[in-house]
Amino acid sequence: MKLLVDIGNTAIKFAILNRQKKIIVFLIMSSHELVAEKNFRQKITTALSKINCNLTDLTLLALLSVRPMWDDLIYQLTLDLKIPFYQVKKNLLTDRLITDIPNPRNLGADLIVGSYATLNLFPKQDVILVNMGTVTTISLLKPGILLGTIIMPGLEISAEALFERAQLLQKFDFSYENVILGKNTKQAINIGLVNGHLLAITGFVNQLASEVSKPQVILTGGNADYIKKLVNYHYDKDLIFHGLVAILQDNNLI
């Protein structure tokens, strides 16, 4: 079995690719939890046991990371388990994805992997990829070519900034409001945060759609839950892992 690890800015996700080539996400922890190596190992072991697996079943580890501070901890795990270690932007080739940007070396690993997933999902279609993570990115792709990306603060980052700077506003679990104007503070904030984020995304998507031919819009990321039922986009919660698997396949590791 292959262990797939996605270290994001906010969360760290662990998945396995089992013998039937099925992706199973078995553990999600916040990034700040990855502090003690002992605790980290125990969390993985416990989570694997719940899907009837253990560490000795693993034959390879593939890492996607945007937090280099944790990379060595993951690498050490592979040394202890004596299994091969592969990392996007380190020792995995992604030649099938062409980038139409001046300095592709600065391209984030998450953007590379997400874009790579679209090559397998919609190989002959133009794609607009919306990734609602810590930041929200909206990328435009022609078949096999990443044309560029829009980056804006993620929904939760925007909420944190609002509550931190406006001290009289209380934190709460925000959600979409099916109204134009708020009649109380909570409703008004929801409209500004969630509805506003939705309007920004759909506005950018519509703008980008005019640049290509009948694009497929894909939605992913942890914050996509807030809007996935409000848009007619193809939703894929495990898109990053699908991209990581596609890269492993292209490197003849699966």
Rank of each mutant, 00 (worst) to 15 (best):
Q87Y: 09
K90V: 13
K90W: 03
N91Q: 08
N91D: 13
L93V: 06
L93E: 11
L93Q: 12
T94I: 11
T94N: 13
D95W: 02
D95E: 14
D95Y: 06
R96N: 14
R96M: 12
R96E: 14
L97M: 04
L97C: 03
I98H: 12
I98L: 12
I101M: 10
P102C: 10
N103L: 13
N103K: 12
N103Q: 12
P104S: 09
P104F: 06
R105V: 11
R105H: 11
R105Y: 10
N106V: 06
N106C: 03
N106T: 12
N106R: 11
L107V: 07
G108K: 02
G108N: 05
G108L: 03
A109V: 08
A109S: 15
A109P: 08
D110I: 03
I112P: 05
I112K: 04
I112F: 06
I112L: 15
V113W: 07
G114I: 03
G114F: 02
S115R: 05
A117F: 05
A117K: 03
A117E: 06
A117P: 09
T118M: 08
T118I: 01
L119A: 08
L119W: 05
L119N: 09
L119C: 12
N120Y: 09
N120S: 15
N120I: 09
N120G: 15
L121P: 01
F122Q: 04
P123A: 10
P123Y: 09
K124S: 13
Q125Y: 05
D126G: 04
D126E: 14
V127H: 01
I128P: 01
I128C: 02
L129K: 01
L129G: 00
V130Y: 00
V130Q: 00
V130P: 00
V130I: 11
N131V: 10
N131E: 12
M132F: 05
M132D: 05
M132W: 05
G133C: 06
G133T: 05
G133V: 05
T136S: 05
T136V: 12
T136G: 04
T136K: 01
T137E: 05
T137L: 05
I138Y: 06
I138C: 10
S139G: 07
S139I: 00
S139F: 02
S139D: 11
L140W: 02
L141I: 01
L141W: 00
L141F: 01
K142M: 10
K142H: 13
P143S: 08
I145D: 01
L146H: 15
L147A: 01
L147E: 03
L147G: 00
G148S: 11
T149E: 11
T149P: 00
M152T: 14
M152I: 14
P153N: 10
P153Q: 09
E156Y: 08
E156R: 11
I157L: 15
I157D: 00
S158T: 15
S158A: 15
S158C: 12
S158E: 09
E160N: 15
E160V: 07
E160H: 12
A161T: 11
L162N: 10
L162P: 13
L162I: 13
L162H: 10
L162F: 11
F163H: 10
E164Q: 15
E164D: 14
R165I: 15
A166L: 09
A166D: 08
A166P: 07
Q167C: 02
L168R: 15
L168V: 12
L169H: 07
L169E: 07
Q170S: 15
F172R: 01
F172P: 00
D173R: 13
F174E: 02
S175W: 00
S175G: 06
S175N: 11
